[in-house]
Simulated assay, not measured.
Amino acid sequence: MQQQDPNARPATGYPYPYPPQQPANGYPPNAATAYPYQNHNPHYAPQPSPRAVLLRRLFTAFTVFLLILGLILFIFFIVVRPQLPTVYLNSLSVSNFTVSDNRLAGNWDLRLQFQNPNSKMSLHYDGVSCALYYDRASLSETRLQPFDLGTKDQTPVNATLSVSGTYVDGRLVDSIGKERGEKGSVEFDLRVVSLVTFRYGVYRRRRYVTVFCDDVAVGVGGNSSSGNMVGSAKRCKP
């Protein structure tokens, strides 16, 4: 029987076959990336719904429409330059003016001057009304007939406001008496409201225009029942 050499060395070239290591979780290594998802169409993206596309197109069209409309209006106002008409109170007189026992009576005759400052737009006045006030208390109101104003045109309009025994507060009676005694005049306020149509070719625009002629002094002394406006013509303010 042959004995083994205790000093013998292991043979080289044939390493000891160690068994493969098993992962602790029991799954093969790189199991999550062993078979990755492959996108065969890298340019693919989810398509929006037809409703979303329609809404987006409608919004774009509406935005473009507003921009075009705004540009047209801007050019129109630059070219035409519409301006509000001006009104002057040329004269104001009162007759049969009496204040007694909290009753007020009188006839006011006035003359207004309407002017159109526009060089490209004509004006049509409809529904013109004049109202007379004293210290914010309404005394009388009248309505004027319609009329037209051409470009850069002007026209005078006469009106009469009457008060026949209208009851007024005692405070107003005292105030009128004080003015007549101290100044020899009484200050009245006038309001003019007009429905004006601006016309330029086929363009039409209607709007209300209101002007005020405030603190118009009429010379009527304590013993007088008639008087005229103190001073020259006065421009009414919007």
Rank of each mutant, 00 (worst) to 15 (best):
M1V: 15
D5G: 06
N7K: 15
R9F: 15
A11Y: 11
Y14M: 12
P15D: 04
P15E: 05
Y16C: 08
Y18W: 12
Q21D: 10
N25M: 07
G26P: 00
Y27C: 10
P28M: 13
N30V: 07
A34V: 07
N39M: 12
P42N: 10
Y44M: 10
Y44G: 09
Y44L: 14
A45K: 12
L54A: 14
R57S: 11
R57P: 01
L58D: 06
A61D: 09
T63N: 08
L71R: 02
L73S: 13
L73D: 08
F77A: 08
V80W: 02
R81P: 00
R81K: 11
P85Q: 01
L89Q: 06
L89K: 02
L89P: 02
N90V: 09
N90I: 09
S93C: 04
S95M: 02
S95I: 04
F97L: 11
F97S: 03
T98S: 05
T98H: 03
V99T: 07
D101T: 10
A105K: 00
D109A: 11
P117V: 07
P117Q: 07
M121T: 12
S122N: 13
L123I: 05
D126L: 04
G127D: 05
A131N: 05
D135E: 12
R136I: 09
R136L: 10
S140W: 05
S140K: 01
Q145P: 03
L149S: 00
T151C: 08
T151N: 11
D153M: 04
Q154S: 15
A159C: 06
S162M: 05
V163S: 04
T166S: 06
T166R: 09
T166P: 00
Y167S: 14
Y167E: 14
V168G: 04
D169Y: 08
G170V: 07
R171D: 10
L172D: 03
V173K: 03
D174L: 08
D174S: 14
R180N: 05
G181I: 05
G181W: 09
G184E: 06
S185G: 05
L190Y: 01
L190S: 00
V192E: 03
F198G: 01
Y208M: 08
F212R: 12
F212I: 10
C213R: 01
D215L: 05
N223W: 09
G227N: 00
R235Y: 04
R235H: 10
